[in-house]
């Protein structure tokens, strides 16, 4: 933690700079979302990449995660592991399960026969 006045003044400059960078990235995200890339998935990837960079800047600089104590990293490592499990396993068990193409189409047919 920066505690001496000089270091704090230094970090203030850094904070303002990062704030500016974030704003620029926001403009970039909005702008790029209107550019049509070959597929929409590519748009999504670019958008999420920019968002991730922004989030990383906030986490690393604003939340001081670039020089935090080991304990915090340990807590976050566990959390991230379980959060990933939450994402991946939901997705996997969905794509294999009942909710597949055939199932949805069959209900759609029932709907259209009404």
């Amino acid at each position: 933690m920066a505690d001496s006045p000089e270091e704090i003044y230094k970090s203030i400059r850094k904070i303002k700079l990062i704030g500016l960078v974030l704003a620029v990235f926001t403009v970039l995200t909005v702008g790029l979302s209107y550019v049509e890339l070959p597929t929409h998935s590519l748009n999504m990837m670019v958008g999420m990449l920019l968002a991730t960079i922004k989030a990383a800047l906030v986490a690393l600089i604003f939340m001081h995660l670039n020089h935090e104590k080991a304990l915090v990293y340990k807590i976050l490592a566990f959390t991230v592991a379980f959060a990933v499990a939450l994402f991946v396993l939901f997705y996997l068990s969905n794509s294999e399960g009942l909710i597949d193409e055939g199932f949805e189409n069959s209900t759609a047919i029932i709907e259209s026969q009404e």
Partner: peptide, 9 residues
Amino acid sequence: FLFPLLYLL
């Protein structure tokens, strides 16, 4: 994350 996911993409 919310802004691009809900507004843009």
